[in-house]
Design a protein around this nucleic acid. Structure first.
Length: 883
RNA sequence: GGACGAUUAGCUCAGUUGGUUAGAGCGUUCGAUUCACAUUCGAAAGGUCGGAGGUUCGAAUCCUCCAUCGUCCACCA
């Protein structure tokens, strides 16, 4: 007889099995037959190690990949990591600062700092990849990619060039978001708004200026070049178009009064001081009205030279001084405290300033040559009816509203960790010399240089090589991760992989990167390949702790997935995550859940242990065995139904229903609790048990790959690769409907068994004691045929007597029965049934119901009524016989 | 300010086109250990589905309003 351990011990087997899978080559689609199916794993940032959220993603993707592989597809699950430009540099700089290096960029310089970041990220990468393996992820390691490796860099340069040539990438002097702390620009999406208290000042620039304005940022008013009013505002109509020279706290300003429909007549004074240099909204107004841009705040967060008396002051100090000044001159009319939202940098945390700067942008509204559409148009078309399906659908709306508000995308960053902007400027020899002496300080030489070309490498020849300077900036990290679905497949080369696996079939992600990533992938792919990068998108929620709080380092509630795996095993972790996932919905994680999952894994183990150690011969059963008894029919039908349901669920990305409702219920509730127990009584069921076990292992494999693979080994006496469960094929769907008659009969028997067990428990009859029972029933044949089961499961001697009742009337023939107690119980039951019957009766007497409800519903209600009537009669009889 | 989501048993959550006496897991109570599994087995208790209206023969499910919690977007200056 086969020896199998009493409990499943994941620790001993997981690593071995993973190695076996990896060595088999089946992670690589080249070794698989069938139609291609591809999933690109969202590359985790190399800022640190993986957390439970990543475990959820790995579980989702791997479950889908394994499911598709079992269904005979040529599955590519492509792994990778993301250099995460700003995030990683910010992180490493922080670590260095904690080590005492106050200003890492200054103290280390570009090359040394880059080395620090590279070392850090290589280390995180190693840990991350190890963690992905621990999760059992069946990804193709031979195609491992990194957003910052050579191939991906080529793709980045190529697309930059293409977009530049199409006029979609341009250099512009525009108002951009600026992080003083990070000393870099930011895209609109990298800003998080946080509420804070601020003071709103209402004042006039000067005594002779007719309009009062309000602001929370008086210091920026030094850069005002206009006042905007609503054209319908009668108070100010007469001033529109007029220009004024004013003396604002000692500075000369030239203010033009302009009309703009976006101005709210009822807010504040109904007039807005326009600062094109330091507000994105004002900047756009400035462009429309041709207003000059006056930059009064510098990159270091201090007032600029044009600010006159205020030059060199910190923003807060300048503000204070200006307010003082306004008070003194009596120009300040009101000062009130308001709640305001302020934009901060998501990575550096400081308040973001808006500054005018020369940067590189992607034009989203500009028409793409020979396509008659803008990037925005492409992005809009890609989702919805004829494009990507987002699950859940509501995120489509979120996406569209984001598109509508999209501005040109600033892609150049002043940090060092990232893809260098592939632009080279040709300076005059002396300027080149000056620049090289201090690049940081002489950046403006490049900004004002009109001779430049797009190139990966120095475009100069031996004569002027030294005068060509590459743009020191790097690209927004999302510029490179936007290419992920195709840069990983060899683009810009026309590889056969690209043709085979693009567009990808499925993409899953958290809703927090919908804009950052999904939108950019759609942009890049529909532009460069004219393909929407994926067919379906699945949005999952974020994992929270047991109190509903976000996991984060600062709240100290982080859980290391490896710790969970160590304690409960990977399969348990995977199942606990997958069984609770609902699209777009946040999910709580707690250890009781994993414990329950671990118990389920062990249950499957023990089911297998029982079957494999008791059957005469372990063998694979290809054909659906012929059912001999009622329970055989029931369980085989159940398996068919479960197979069909699980398949449907997986095709719809309903991981939770597939695993929790159907598989768990069938495995534990039907197969273990009933059928295996029955098989001990009815005997000779090796074929059916083995047949079901094999299919169960396959159905469970996407959710719990390790334990199923480990059990599967017992079917073979060698460990050839082609015997691995992961490629054995998905169970065939034979039929998806259960036989209603069989269903009903089994239900009747099970209800009878439960009732009798209940009676035993209530009357405190020892479970071991054999008792005599009399069953009065119309359908004696059914009960006679299943007598052995009833007697076996109930430890009873049962006499079946013919009666008119279609529900069994149970009599326990024993002295210890407490008649009073019994009567009470029956009375209670009777009451409930009578209430129910009254309910049904009312419904059936309602003419509207009879005439309007569909016939099958009415018939079902009638049937229910006759049944409950019978039960009531039965119970009444029992009471009588007891008294 | 705008949009979206959640509210179902003590806890965590299912409930897919409106039609079962509203389900599961955990927890609780009672009982069981030579027979695959105490990481187990058996039994039970526990909910007027956030509130108020409406549509319908019929509402946890659809509509309106309200309440509470949460998320995203947005520089009302």
């Amino acid at each position: 007889m086969k020896e199998i351990e009493k409990a499943y011990n994941p620790k001993g087997v997981e690593d071995k099995i993973y190695k076996k899978w990896e060595d088999s080559g089946f992670f690589n689609p080249d070794n698989l037959p069938g139609k291609p199916y591809s999933i690109m794993m969202p590359p985790p940032n190399v800022t640190g190690v993986l957390h439970l959220g990543h475990s959820l993603e790995n579980s989702l993707m791997d479950a889908m990949a394994r499911y598709q592989r079992l269904r005979g597809k040529k599955v590519l699950l492509l792994p990778g990591t993301d250099h995460a430009a700003v995030a990683t540099q910010a992180k490493v700089e922080k670590i260095l600062m904690e080590k005492g290096i106050k200003n890492p960029r200054q103290e280390l310089g570009r090359e040394k700092l880059l080395k620090e970041i590279r070392d850090f990220s290589e280390n995180s990468k190693k840990i991350i990849l190890g963690q992905i393996k621990k999760m059992g992820t069946s990804c193709d390691w031979s195609r491992l990619a990194y957003t910052f490796d050579e191939d991906r860099n080529k793709a980045v340069n190529e697309i930059f060039k293409k977009m530049y040539e199409d006029g979609l990438i341009y250099r512009g002097f525009r108002a951009v978001n600026w992080s003083t702390k990070g000393q870099s620009t930011l895209s609109d999406d990298e800003i998080v708004h946080i509420p804070r208290k601020a003071k709103l000042y209402t004042f006039k620039y000067s005594k002779d200026f007719p309009i009062t304005i309000a602001t929370t940022r008086p210091e920026t008013k030094l850069g005002d070049t206009a006042v905007a009013v609503n054209p319908k505002d009668l108070r100010y109509k007469k001033y529109i178009g007029k220009e004024f020279d004013v003396d604002f706290v000692g500075q000369k300003l030239h203010i033009k009064v302009i009309a703009d429909n976006s101005i709210d007549i009822n807010f504040g004074t109904g007039a807005l001081g326009v600062t094109p240099a330091h507000s994105l909204v004002d900047y756009e107004m400035g462009v429309k009205n041709n207003l000059p841009i006056i930059k009064v705040i510098n990159e270091d967060g201090k007032m600029a030279g044009v600010a006159g008396d205020y030059e060199g002051l910190k923003i807060e100090d300048a503000r204070e001084k200006i307010v003082d000044n306004l008070k003194k001159t009596g120009l300040l009319e009101k000062e009130e405290e308001i709640e305001q939202n302020v934009g901060t940098s998501d990575r550096f945390g400081d308040i973001v300033e808006v500054l005018p700067k020369t940067q590189w942008f992607v034009a989203v509204n500009k028409e793409i040559p020979s396509r008659g559409k803008s990037l925005k148009d492409l992005m809009r078309e890609a989702v919805g009816k004829n494009g990507v399906k987002i699950t859940p659908k509501r995120f489509e709306k979120v996406y569209f509203s984001w598109i509508d508000n999209l501005r040109d995308w600033c892609i150049s960053r002043q940090i060092w960790w990232g893809h260098r902007v592939p632009i080279w400027y040709r300076l005059n020899s002396d300027l080149a010399e000056i620049y090289k002496q201090n690049p940081e300080a002489n950046r403006h030489l490049l900004d004002s240089e009109s001779r430049f070309v797009v190139s990966e490498t120095n475009p100069g020849d031996n004569n002027d090589k030294d005068y060509w300077i590459q743009d020191p900036d790097t690209l927004d990290t999302w510029f490179s991760s936007g290419l992920w679905t195709f840069s990983t497949l060899g683009w810009p080369q026309k590889t056969k992989e690209l043709k085979m696996f693009h567009p990808t079939n499925w993409m899953q992600m958290g809703h927090e990167i919908l804009f950052f990533w999904m939108a950019r992938m759609i942009l890049m792919s529909s532009y460069a390949l004219k393909e929407i990068p994926f067919k379906d998108i699945y949005i999952h929620g974020i994992l929270r702790d047991e109190n509903g709080k976000k996991f984060s380092k600062s709240s100290g509630n982080n859980i290391d997935p490896l710790e969970v795996i160590e304690k409960y095993g990977t399969d348990a972790l995977r199942f606990s995550l997958l069984s609770g996932v609902a699209p777009g919905q946040d999910q709580r994680f707690y250890f009781e859940k994993v414990e329950g999952a671990r118990n389920l894994v062990n249950k499957l183990w023990n089911i297998s242990r029982y079957i494999l150690t008791t059957v005469k011969k372990i063998e694979r059963i290809e054909e659906r065995p012929e059912p001999k008894t009622l329970y055989d029919k029931w369980i085989l039908d159940g398996l068919d139904f479960t197979t069909s349901a699980v398949t449907t669920c997986m095709n719809r990305y309903e991981f939770s229903s597939a695993s929790e409702i159907f598989l768990r219920n069938f495995t534990w509730g039907m197969f273990a609790d009933w059928y295996i127990e029955v098989s001990k009584i009815e005997k000779n069921k090796d074929e059916i048990l083995l047949y079901i076990l094999e299919r169960l292992l396959k159905l469970w494999h996407p959710f719990m790959p390790f334990v199923t693979e480990e059990i599967w080994k017992n079917f073979f006496d060698n460990d050839n690769n082609e015997n691995l469960l992961m490629i054995q094929g998905w169970p065939e769907i034979l039929k998806d409907k259960r036989d209603i008659k069989v269903e009903k009969e089994v239900k009747l028997i099970q209800e009878t068994i439960v009732s009798i067990r209940n009676l035993r428990a209530e009357n405190k009859i020892e479970p071991a004691k054999i008792i005599n029972i009399e069953l009065n029933i119309k359908n004696t044949k059914l009960f006679e045929e299943n007598l052995a089961i009833l007697e076996g499961l109930l430890r009873s001697k049962i006499q079946i007597k013919k009666s008119k009742s279609s529900v069994p009337e149970i009599k326990i023939l024993i002295d210890e029965m407490d008649a009073e107690k019994n009567k009470l119980r029956i009375k209670k039951e009777l009451e409930e049934k009578e209430k129910y019957a009254a309910n049904l009766k009312q419904r059936l007497e309602n003419k509207e119901f009879i005439s309007r409800a569909p016939k099958n519903i009415v018939d079902a209600e009638k049937e229910k009524f006759t049944k409950v009537e019978e039960e009531i009669k039965n119970l009444r009889g029992q009471i009588e016989s007891l008294s």
